[in-house]
Design a binder for these strands. Sequence first.
DNA 1: TGTAGGCGGATTGTTGACAATCCTGGCTCG
DNA 2: CGAGCCAGGATTGTCAACAATCCGCCTACA
Lengths: 228, 228
Amino acid sequence: MPRPQERNARAEDRVFNAILDAVLDHRLAPGTKLKERELAEIFGASRGAVRGALTRLGHSLLVELRPNRGAVIANPSSAETPDLFEARRVIESALMQRLARNITAKQIAELRAFVAEEQRAYDRGDRKAGQRLSIRFHKLVSEFAGNAALDRFMEHLICRTPLLALARTGRIAYCGAADHREVVEALAKRDAAAAVRRMTEHLANVERQLVREDQPEMPQTLAAVFSA
Amino acid sequence: MPRPQERNARAEDRVFNAILDAVLDHRLAPGTKLKERELAEIFGASRGAVRGALTRLGHSLLVELRPNRGAVIANPSSAETPDLFEARRVIESALMQRLARNITAKQIAELRAFVAEEQRAYDRGDRKAGQRLSIRFHKLVSEFAGNAALDRFMEHLICRTPLLALARTGRIAYCGAADHREVVEALAKRDAAAAVRRMTEHLANVERQLVREDQPEMPQTLAAVFSA
DNA sequence: TGTAGGCGGATTGTTGACAATCCTGGCTCG
DNA sequence: CGAGCCAGGATTGTCAACAATCCGCCTACA
């Protein structure tokens, strides 16, 4: 006999995590409608639990909550790309400087092992797993830096990045284990300047992938469509 | 006959903003219990609306949500102070660099007028108003910088700062219009380095106020109390 | 034929009652 | 006399029915 309170407190988390994972794995396209009843049925949860999960996802900007019109997977405009990546460069540069000072040998070992696993995933052609590990690499770096406020913010930025990639290019952004390894090795040498440079370049690489493929985007105004 | 949906969608906002303002104005001490029924009565709202507001405040870390035990105004530990201020220095330095490049004459004028108003508030001894304007100064700067992602994060950091001040020192942190004016004048000259330096020093000044008065804090362990 | 207006179904928003949980105070028992 | 325990009351968590809203389509009319 499951206790309602505990069971359902987890029900909300279950729905939240399921949708979050689906977005990160690109299994839910931007604009997909998220109906409360349907989700409640699928997850065997009450509508209230689903509502709570959607509200949280909305606060993280992963779904767009339109009053009286339901929730859809967010469909960020390409105008957000520069802002997002500038924010990431700012924060992650700061993280690099912190880590170059404070990182422990154990953390270095853990990062190396992580990058190796990431590399193996890409090598065997498992892009989904590679992508997921690439995301978690940035989160791991953020946690190791040991600043809770920055880590919290990074979580938001990291989750939003793949969504933006999917909305713009229609496919997975390739993060790449090689870039990550260079960052880790710079940190291992406690070379703050090199770590910052490599992380910055890495982020610029990912961003460039997005804008380069940003051609087939929908025009913003009707005037632009018919001006030619 | 007020329409339930619209009236209550705003009811949640009303509760949210009222509590937010009360925290920023230091009218609610950390640890204060926020009972749902009581708040619902006070604001003439339903318990659901109050719940929604509390959930949002919880997500902003302004109230602590304890499962089955209700919500209280957050009581952050002093250990968070360095993290918070480091995050602010990182972000606001980036904002300064952006603004030194992009700020418009109109924005400069607006910032100058804002600082003048802030100064007048302090001059006439109205600390509450001065404090409120000091907070909004940082938010205004953040908005002018024009990066939505960073602005969003700044909002969280800015709201959390006075709470930390209250929890630690028991009184209002003095931000000071003079520091703000120097920042604005550096921006007016489009001197990025000077703007960054002044903002960084300003934040360091505020942080120093907090740690300097951090003596009468509760000891963390019983052992520490009785070791003497 | 094209457009304005308005039903019908589906979906979201809200409420109040009910269930579960926690805290408090007093009681019993060792 | 103190520790453990057990109601009683207060508070939070959950749910399912009801109300409000929106979208698509259909009709009527110019």
